[in-house]
Amino acid sequence: MKRRSLLKGSLTAGMAGVAATAGLLTPQMVMAAWPKAAFEAKGMNNAVKSLFGSEGLTASGDISIKAPPIAENGAVVNIAVSTSLKNVDSISILVEKNAQPLTSSFNLAAVTEPFIKTRVIKTRVKVAKTSSVIAVVKSGGKLYSAGREVKVTIGGCGG
């Protein structure tokens, strides 16, 4: 009998240990929400596939990208993306020729009202060398894209 209770006791302790480990793991799981693989992916297709789970991009005329045709300093390139597509879930900005193309992704799904005017994201990104800047808009489960070339005279990566 004593042995039984000992076994039970150790089992409970074991369970507590598991629970503690699970508790310890939780913050890391929250961190995992940042898609490391997508940001580290090399090449446009890999990055898109890693971020969205598919690589079928449809070129769309409903996305407009504002970017300087010639960027004097590739470390700071102003990019503005706007779209008139409906049901926009997210807007992502990729630089095709960067070693790691994905620069940023903005989730707008939480905005319920389909206000066309509000589908705008402006930010600044690094462009390593002359490249197309691609905006990928996820809308209704589909991926749409548009691109614009930026010529870079001084690279944005490296010293």
Binding site: T103, L108, R124
Partner: peptide, 18 residues
């Protein structure tokens, strides 16, 4: 706005949304 940024966003990031 729920944005994911990577290292390719410029130093001292500027973001605008509506």
């Amino acid at each position: 706005l729920d944005g994911l940024l990577g290292p390719a966003v410029s130093k001292n990031p500027f973001i605008q949304c509506k």
